[in-house]
């Protein structure tokens, strides 16, 4: 049997809200070490990679590896039936064709149970090579969300340029052009508010804003986001999930013709 109880159930709600517009169906790979998911969007431009380690659950039981194919839109609807402070348990019997979701109120006086039919998903697994990135930018996730939203006013794509001074987002379209420049923070009260650029070499890449906007829906998961860039390599956008794992998005760059 597979059973994973997540005391902070709202993490799962935020996760699914963050990926449901990007990916329709996904295989949850359940292993003794934890829960993972890898899925590309239908146009193969972006990839979602989720890891939730077993030690983030309480308890976590996985007797053998299981693949749970789940329609994320259905899962999102079901998760809307839970409260933010509910404890959420995912359970799957060894020979079952469904995943069971249990929502438990903090005082345990309300228990709801939903049985979700599993779906068969033909999912290509991709090998993501280890990359030494030219630049790694860390910034508040709310700032990232705001910049992406602001740049969308101007056009469909954004050029992100990392230098020793900081990071610059620029866009241009029919109505005009604009940019937002973030300097590296010198002194901040909280690390979560800082902007840092770890630079090996200056790099400038262009990406579709539509996807960045979808990634930025993960902002409620984590106060900070990390963007990793290398020339002509997919962008990595990473949100840490408390102390238990991460939600990563990869986005293929736009290439000059």
């Amino acid at each position: 049997m597979f059973e994973a109880r997540l005391p902070q159930g709202q993490i799962l709600k935020k996760l699914i809200e963050a990926v449901r517009e990007l990916v329709t169906d996904a295989n949850f790979e359940c292993k003794p070490s934890g829960l993972s998911l890898q899925a590309m969007d239908s146009s193969h431009v972006s990839l979602v990679s989720l890891l939730m380690r077993a030690d983030g659950f309480d308890p976590y039981q996985c007797d053998r590896n299981r693949t749970l194919g789940i329609n994320l839109r259905t899962l999102a609807s079901v998760l809307k039936c839970s409260s933010n402070d509910d404890i959420i348990t995912i359970r799957a019997e060894d020979d079952g064709d469904s995943a069971i979701l249990i929502f438990e109120s903090p005082s345990s006086d309300r228990l709801s149970e939903f049985d979700l039919k599993l779906v068969d998903i033909d999912n290509e697994q991709l090998v993501i090579p280890d990359t030494q990135y030219d630049a790694v930018v860390r910034m508040p996730s709310a700032e990232f969300q705001r910049i992406v939203r602001d740049m969308q006013i101007l056009g469909d794509s954004v050029t992100i340029a990392c230098s020793k001074d900081g990071v610059k987002f620029s866009a241009n379209g029919e109505i005009g052009s604009g940019s937002v420049r973030l300097k590296q923070s010198s002194a901040v009260d909280s690390e979560d508010d800082a902007v840092t650029v770890d630079l090996q070499q200056a790099v400038s890449l262009t990406f579709a804003l539509r996807y960045l906007s979808l990634f930025s829906k993960a902002a409620p998961l984590s106060p900070t986001v990390t963007l990793s860039f290398s020339k002509d390599v997919p962008l990595l956008v990473e949100f840490r999930i408390a102390d238990m794992g991460h939600l990563r998005f990869y986005l293929a760059p736009k290439i000059d013709e």
């Binding site: 431009v45 991709l126 990869y250 293929a252 290439i255």
Partner: peptide, 14 residues
Amino acid sequence: DSTQSRLDGFFKVL
């Protein structure tokens, strides 16, 4: 002008 690349060109299918 730029074109959107796809991930298949960067990541290998297992």
